[in-house]
Design a protein around this nucleic acid. Structure first.
Lengths: 308, 308
DNA sequence: ACATGAAATGCTCATATAGAGCATAACGGA
DNA sequence: TCCGTTATGCTCTATATGAGCATTTCATGT
């Protein structure tokens, strides 16, 4: 009767790998922790001694970089088709972690890199940054022109328009992965099969740049509805420092007064009572994050027109 | 120099398992597709023949339930500590899928179950449903009283208050997983180690009920910012039918007029021109989902005070 | 033909939120 | 003391959200 089993075949074996996207923001630059001289993300196999996937990931980061890590969440899991050892598949489980940068790891090949080193087109702060986009856009259009038929060409142009915010559409900073994938398909990144004359931006080992893109996308989306930025801040900070951090992550400039209003009305911070003159100009009040408030209300915007 | 390797130990082996949470809404009831006579979710090992994790999952669902599945997204990956064959770990990758229920699978043990069968306390539609909550609440409080010391007891009460919306706090339908975990810790579900006199709600094999809870939580959160409900709707539907579907998922009643306004202002639907009298009362216009619109704007609420 | 019950729709009002700027305050340094 | 710079306060407008009241339009029973 209930003989539909959960498994009926001899279980195939696989290798589970753990990969970490560790993020920090220092001097207004978003950074990612890398090994192998900026070519790879910390990673290693999931082993029987690991108590959990996350514990295993923490262990590898610790071992490879000696860097402490705080807030961590799971990112995505995928089976890399390119890495198929005979009969065995590699299943990669990636994690996103947020910390504050600690200098002096001393490990060879380990370091913090600006993530815009890998995705220059994702930095839209400053007015001149549109130049990068214009160049990429031109080359993407050339790729679109090369589509097999008219509908295919139209579809390509539509995707370019949406992901890169052309044709009157607004730039959406969350579409990091979609943009990377579009460039990959267009053969404009070195790791693409039909790569030729790639756009600026360094590649990474295996699919690590893709995983990094996934991490950025997740983080850019998350800062909008969860107070995770504070994981990247020192204990005390000014509102402008907080703003600069968000801007670094989002890759966009924010309206100062409205940003303050947003932060203050949410009651996420409280004044320490001190101020700092280190920022130049009028001294800025120092704030601290109110963890207690976050624990209280499980912040989730309703968005549904509830009855009663 | 760059000898920090991605892997330096002989890779440990693991078994990768795929699990599917398949959801449909029929007759105003949210349902989940089960095998093993409502005790388990469709699942099976990831095999070398599978082209990708998702493809493998689709293959298992097809094989075990013969049910077609449409929209699919990855849910979560975890290593079940309880299922450790010697030296081997099981890594489970779960997926959430949305479809419309198709009758007559004919497979023994396979069927659609209301998900409130497993989580009765999650259904807050209708005024009398508070009774279930009151009972659970009383027993949770008893558990809180049994805390080792005063701070522990206070902390337990605080968690109960937040997750179950007590003490003046609002009920947050997204906290499905937190509520389940709280009940688990309190020993109020059969699968808990120190289970005794569990609350209503059927358990499932292994950690499948936990995975189901993860799926519900994700779906309840997602319907608020992505138009995924339409994956559950027939090609043509009335606004009330749409509302009932959302209510089924959210487990809460919505304000009718405001719901319409919300849907209509978002331009996600268009009139078919027809109407139906089958609903009783004044005939309702029939609508269809505008997939084209969704493709156009990669809907993501801004929430950041952008400059310019 | 007419009264009723059940929905479907239309609209209004008060209260938040979000987008853009103008104006003022408070320091360090020229 | 004047200036450049950054911090803060406030205002105004446009939109979105929460709650209801009022009409319309069918099917049915009398």
């Amino acid at each position: 009767m209930d003989q539909v089993p959960t498994r009926h075949k001899p279980a195939a074996e696989a290798i589970a790998e753990l990969i970490a996207v560790l993020v920090a923001v220092t001097d207004g630059e978003p950074r990612v922790l890398t090994i192998d001289r900026a070519r790879a993300l910390p990673s290693g196999p999931f082993e029987p001694t690991h108590r959990s996937l996350q514990a295993g990931m923490r262990s590898w980061v610790e071992q490879q970089t000696h860097h402490p890590l705080g807030y961590v969440e799971q990112l995505y899991t995928f089976a890399d088709r390119d890495r198929t050892a005979m009969g065995q598949r590699t299943v990669s489980v990636s994690y996103l972690g947020l910390t504050r940068e600690v200098r002096a790891s001393g490990e060879p090949g380990v370091g913090w890199q600006s993530w815009y080193r890998y995705f220059p087109w994702e930095d839209r702060r400053g007015p001149d940054t549109e130049g990068v986009a214009a160049d990429i856009d031109a080359r993407l259009r050339a790729w679109a022109e090369a589509g097999v038929d008219a509908p295919a060409r139209r579809e390509r142009l539509r995707r370019i328009g949406i992901t890169f915010g052309q044709d009157g559409r607004a730039w959406n900073e969350e579409l990091v992965l979609q943009r990377y994938e579009l460039l990959w398909e267009a053969g404009l990144v070195p790791e693409s099969p039909q790569a030729a004359n790639p756009v600026p931006g360094e590649p990474m080992t295996h699919d690590h740049r893709r995983i990094l893109a996934t991490g950025l996308a997740r983080l850019r989306a998350k800062i909008k509805y969860r107070p995770v930025v504070f994981e990247l801040m020192p204990p005390r900070f000014t509102l402008l420092q907080l703003q600069r951090t968000v801007e670094a992550l989002a890759g966009r400039l924010l309206h100062k007064q409205n940003f303050r209003r947003l932060i203050e009305q949410q009651d996420l911070v409280e004044e320490t009572g001190d101020a700092t003159t280190e920022t130049g100009g009028r001294p800025a009040k120092l704030f601290r994050f109110r963890r207690d408030v976050v624990a209280e209300r499980a912040v989730t915007g309703s968005k549904l027109p509830l009855a009663r």
